[in-house]
Design a protein around this nucleic acid. Structure first.
Lengths: 152, 152
DNA sequence: TTGGGTGCAAACTCTTTGCATGCCC
DNA sequence: GGGCATGCAAAGAGTTTGCACCCAA
């Protein structure tokens, strides 16, 4: 998730791409801006749809290629929530990260972070003979909206 | 993972299916037996290949239908490690569960369990306004074999 | 001008579905 | 005999690739 207090993610992303020798382009700018607006992950198709709705249609292949590039450069993360679709989200350059809950009722993806969980995973890595480079926690259940529909 | 000390998973699975009014069949028996042998998850294609190698070719559709049935009945679990392929593993009737590490070098899936991790997730559910029905933890890194190749 | 970027369409992979045939009870 | 189970092939969904055209530097 972008850290608004420091440098906006979009700016950071463009800098990293420029530094890696990539040309700047309209499509990449639009994809980056769209991701920068998000609080959570979007699928490639979401991105294609939104950009089309905004009157800036983009080729599907280009969306995938741009996302691949962002992931390669460590700018975006790929989240797999199952069902065979990948979602992408901006990654905090500071290294902070979070996990997701997929709501069974509304399908919404809710982000959260939890130091206790991080600690448990760190200890686990020490306990086992494993080297853990990355971890992903996915919860399935009901989000706060769907859990207490009457309260809303 | 099957609990060998109690009733073998394969026996349990056949009983559950029979109780739910399903016909017994050769293909289902073979898929159940193959899963029962495994220490960890297999993909639908793995299953198809192994059964073909054993001289008992099975239609792809039937494999998927059988796996779907096992998941429906709570007998098997679907593990999504990304890359768009689903893997299936026998589920301990006792409710015990574990998580996985995908090895970056050899692609092996290693199962592990960790009470600390379970506790952290339980607390997390209490802390947030979320109802957590299920959780999945996926680690990526190096398994013990690939981490210390010289030691083996 | 030139090499990277883009879009279209076709290819690919994993999975699901339709339908005729086969087998269990 | 009746219905579920099976297999084949075709359909689907998401993603990747090939290739000709376009644009930024």
């Amino acid at each position: 998730m972008p850290d608004a207090a420091a440098k906006p993610w979009g700016v950071h992303a463009r800098e990293v791409l420029a530094r890696s020798g990539r040309l700047r382009s309209g499509v990449r700018d639009r994809v980056i801006d769209l991701l920068a607006e998000q609080r959570c992950a979007l699928s490639a198709q979401d991105i294609e749809h939104v950009l089309r709705q905004r009157g800036r249609p983009v080729g599907r292949a280009t969306v995938y290629r741009t996302l691949e590039l962002l992931v390669e450069q460590g700018l975006a993360g790929r989240v797999e929530v199952g069902e065979g679709i990948a979602r992408y989200e901006p990654l905090d350059p500071g290294g902070d990260h979070h996990h997701h809950l997929v709501c069974r009722s509304c399908g919404r993806l809710v982000a959260f972070d939890d130091p206790g969980l991080e600690r448990a995973i760190k200890r686990l890595g020490e306990r086992l003979e494993l080297q853990i480079d990355e971890h992903e926690v996915l919860l399935r259940g009901a989000c706060e909206r769907c859990r207490a529909p009457a309260a809303v």
